[in-house]
Simulated scan of single mutants.
Amino acid sequence: MEGKLVLADGSVFSGTMLGPLHTVGEVVFNTGMTGYQEVLTDPSYCGQIVTMTYPLIGNYGVAASFNQSRQPYVRGFVIGELCSTPSNWRAENSLAEFLKRHRIPCLYGVDTRALTRRIRASGVMMGVLAPARMGHEEALALLSNADVVHLVEKVTTPIVYRLPRTGPRVVVMDFGVKRNILESLARLGCDLTVVPAATTAETILAMEPDGVFLSNGPGDPKEVSYAIETVKKLVGRKPIFGICLGHQILALALGGDTYKLKFGHRGANHPVKDLATGRVFITSQNHGYAVAETSLHGTDLVVTHRAVNDGTVEGLRHRTLPVFSVQYHPEAAPGPHDNMYLFQQFYQLMTKEV
């Protein structure tokens, strides 16, 4: 079936639709060569139509062990070539079957290089993914009804649950947490209690945790005002570690500001410099917002990491309190697990080993 992606600026990209479904979302691109199933199931992509810049997608199939959450959250998928004959000893199904089963609209056979260049030049924008038979005006009309706000509420856990271990007790504020992050903390022995995003500071402190973890998640951090207020009350009470959206929420809670990037950072190949050591790490990232460095003047926050490509803030720490955060995903290393030291630092803060 012929299909198309219609962007808010009126440009159209043609291809083949995997099925008759249509969708509306923010069109972004991811530069990773692998990890397409992790992208599809990462809650941070909620509300978005994701374009993969790598030309061949689906070549190693899909498997349940790669899922990062209880369900996929992307609105749509745009790729160059959809592999129909995956080869991988772990594969349980093809990508096409996975997309159909979860009713994720997919457009393939697209000039993804041209689409990516358009987004880089004009910035991310809303788009409609639909069969070619849908009229252009009808497609543009759908943009006015797009629901891409309050995304954290759509992905956070509805209930409190535990992943018991024998180590320090950690309360995880779930803004859209990935499974690999929870597993990384659990491997260190952390006794995890995962709570909904709107959980109050009083409720969290009543659980008597040794530390609080602020997870990744989708959307504008300023929309999660209730979480910002909660973190304000937790700072100074317990060690805190934030990742991605959690990093942005922490900055806002401590007097900083955030802003929307032109086209964001999404992929498994972004270089980040640790300012303390001078070492550059290759990191996995997925965010459309960043902390404004100028807003940190006069606060107790110090920049610890910086993006090599554009100089944006990638890490923060408090001058005196056991509080720190990073913008990237240390658990999602594309190769060696060099960034796992951040989880170990959090562990040491909770057990007072430093």
Score class of each variant (00 low, 15 high):
residue 217 G to A: 06
residue 220 D to P: 03
residue 220 D to S: 02
residue 220 D to C: 04
residue 221 P to I: 00
residue 222 K to V: 15
residue 223 E to F: 07
residue 223 E to D: 15
residue 224 V to G: 02
residue 225 S to H: 11
residue 228 I to R: 00
residue 230 T to F: 09
residue 231 V to H: 01
residue 232 K to I: 11
residue 235 V to F: 07
residue 237 R to Q: 12
residue 237 R to D: 05
residue 240 I to Y: 06
residue 241 F to E: 02
residue 242 G to P: 04
residue 242 G to Y: 02
residue 242 G to C: 02
residue 243 I to H: 02
residue 243 I to R: 03
residue 244 C to E: 00
residue 244 C to W: 02
residue 245 L to F: 04
residue 245 L to W: 02
residue 245 L to R: 07
residue 246 G to Q: 05
residue 248 Q to L: 00
residue 248 Q to I: 00
residue 249 I to V: 15
residue 249 I to D: 00
residue 249 I to S: 04
residue 249 I to G: 02
residue 250 L to F: 02
residue 250 L to H: 00
residue 251 A to R: 01
residue 253 A to H: 02
residue 254 L to Y: 11
residue 254 L to H: 06
residue 254 L to I: 00
residue 256 G to D: 04
residue 257 D to G: 08
residue 260 K to W: 01
residue 260 K to H: 09
residue 261 L to C: 06
residue 261 L to Y: 09
residue 262 K to I: 01
residue 263 F to R: 03
residue 264 G to A: 03
residue 264 G to V: 02
residue 265 H to Y: 10
residue 265 H to R: 13
residue 267 G to Y: 01
residue 268 A to D: 12
residue 269 N to C: 08
residue 269 N to T: 06
residue 270 H to I: 15
residue 270 H to Q: 12
residue 272 V to N: 03
residue 272 V to K: 04
residue 273 K to I: 15
residue 278 G to R: 13
residue 283 T to W: 06
residue 283 T to L: 12
residue 285 Q to R: 10
residue 286 N to K: 03
residue 287 H to K: 08
residue 287 H to L: 09
residue 291 V to I: 14
residue 292 A to W: 01
residue 293 E to D: 07
residue 296 L to A: 12
residue 298 G to T: 10
residue 300 D to M: 10
residue 301 L to V: 13
residue 301 L to P: 01
residue 302 V to A: 09
residue 303 V to F: 11
residue 303 V to T: 14
residue 304 T to N: 01
residue 305 H to N: 11
residue 305 H to R: 10
residue 305 H to L: 07
residue 306 R to I: 08
residue 307 A to E: 05
residue 307 A to C: 14
residue 308 V to C: 08
residue 308 V to Y: 11
residue 309 N to H: 14
residue 310 D to V: 15
residue 311 G to F: 08
residue 311 G to A: 09
residue 311 G to M: 10
residue 314 E to F: 14
residue 314 E to S: 12
residue 314 E to Q: 15
residue 315 G to Q: 06
residue 319 R to L: 14
residue 323 V to L: 11
residue 323 V to S: 07
residue 325 S to E: 05
residue 325 S to I: 04
residue 325 S to G: 10
residue 326 V to R: 01
residue 326 V to W: 05
residue 326 V to C: 11
residue 328 Y to V: 08
residue 330 P to G: 08
residue 331 E to F: 05
residue 332 A to E: 06
residue 333 A to W: 14
residue 333 A to S: 14
residue 334 P to C: 07
residue 335 G to M: 12
residue 336 P to Q: 06
residue 338 D to Y: 15
residue 339 N to E: 15
residue 339 N to K: 06
residue 341 Y to Q: 03
residue 342 L to Y: 09
residue 342 L to P: 06
residue 342 L to G: 08
residue 344 Q to G: 10
residue 346 F to A: 05
residue 347 Y to M: 09
residue 347 Y to E: 02
residue 348 Q to V: 05
residue 348 Q to H: 14
residue 348 Q to N: 13
residue 349 L to G: 06
residue 349 L to P: 07
residue 350 M to S: 08
residue 350 M to G: 05
residue 351 T to R: 09
residue 352 K to Y: 07
residue 352 K to M: 00
residue 352 K to L: 01
residue 352 K to H: 14
residue 353 E to S: 10
residue 353 E to D: 11
residue 354 V to C: 13
